[in-house]
Simulated scan of single mutants.
Amino acid sequence: MKFVLKQTVVAVYLKGSWWSTEDVLRTSDPTREGLMKVQSFGERIVLFILNVVIFGRSERNLDDDDMFFLPHSMKEQAKILWRHGAAVGFYTTKMKGSLCGNGTGACYLLPVFDTVFIRRKQRRQGLGTAMLRDFCDTFQEEEALGVSSPISPAMFQVCRQFLSACAEERGRLWEVEPPGAWGQRINIWLKIQLQQASVPDRE
């Protein structure tokens, strides 16, 4: 796989041909709609383009033009969000029992909602909340679930909206640092309540 680089990546060389990045993200398969687990090599390429090219360069302001985001490990679970024949976002999960990183023997003690991305044109449509709901539904048997720390302001708003609507998830969703021991967890709903309590009422 090769890239044409200017200020942004405009084309990708795949299977003997050059493809625009937008073409790589399209699909003619009508069954690809909604959140779907990444399984095939082709889906890994789509994830790579969304993560490294779109998220890493095209739709992110960078101080350093040489900066890239590392592709996700093959061992990391990911789901791509398909809408109207195109990949428009993704989220990844650090699986319980997986290594926290190279050079460490520590493993995650709970599933962790890690990287989340939605393309700019698709934002403010409840898709982030849908991803978080899907994550929680995927691990219904787990007593505790994590969201990677630090939580961005946008992700914190997603958590607020989700937990306001889903009271049953308030006790098991935690902001965590790896590997997610109890001393490395903060209950997200409690954090939301404390933040609200610290804001003075406006009359």
Rank of each mutant, 00 (worst) to 15 (best):
47 L>W: 06
136 C>V: 15
131 M>T: 09
97 G>N: 07
191 K>C: 08
191 K>I: 00
105 G>L: 12
162 F>K: 12
127 L>T: 05
15 K>G: 05
30 P>Q: 06
181 A>V: 02
71 P>S: 13
57 R>I: 15
61 N>T: 12
18 W>R: 03
8 T>K: 12
169 E>P: 00
92 T>I: 09
99 L>Y: 13
107 C>K: 14
191 K>V: 03
25 L>D: 01
5 L>M: 14
91 Y>G: 08
181 A>S: 15
15 K>V: 11
60 R>C: 13
24 V>I: 15
74 M>Q: 08
35 L>E: 05
64 D>I: 09
21 T>F: 04
113 F>N: 04
129 T>D: 08
62 L>C: 13
109 L>N: 11
88 V>N: 03
171 G>T: 03
91 Y>H: 07
77 Q>K: 13
50 L>R: 04
185 R>I: 04
40 S>D: 09
138 T>W: 00
176 V>E: 04
62 L>W: 00
59 E>P: 10
185 R>E: 04
197 A>F: 10
12 V>M: 08
7 Q>G: 14
49 I>C: 13
14 L>K: 06
87 A>E: 01
5 L>T: 12
10 V>C: 11
148 S>A: 15
123 R>E: 10
166 C>D: 10
18 W>V: 08
98 S>I: 01
62 L>M: 11
4 V>C: 06
122 Q>S: 13
164 S>M: 09
133 R>W: 05
193 Q>L: 14
58 S>R: 14
22 E>K: 03
202 R>P: 01
117 F>D: 05
132 L>G: 11
171 G>R: 03
50 L>N: 02
119 R>C: 12
169 E>I: 01
201 D>V: 10
172 R>Q: 10
3 F>C: 06
184 Q>E: 15
150 P>I: 05
116 V>Y: 09
103 G>R: 04
117 F>W: 07
57 R>V: 15
187 N>Q: 11
76 E>T: 15
182 W>F: 02
4 V>W: 04
60 R>G: 02
66 D>G: 12
203 E>I: 04
200 P>V: 14
11 A>F: 02
89 G>D: 01
10 V>N: 11
55 F>K: 14
9 V>P: 02
184 Q>G: 03
42 G>C: 03
92 T>Q: 06
104 T>H: 11
65 D>W: 09
25 L>Y: 02
36 M>K: 12
118 I>W: 00
175 E>W: 05
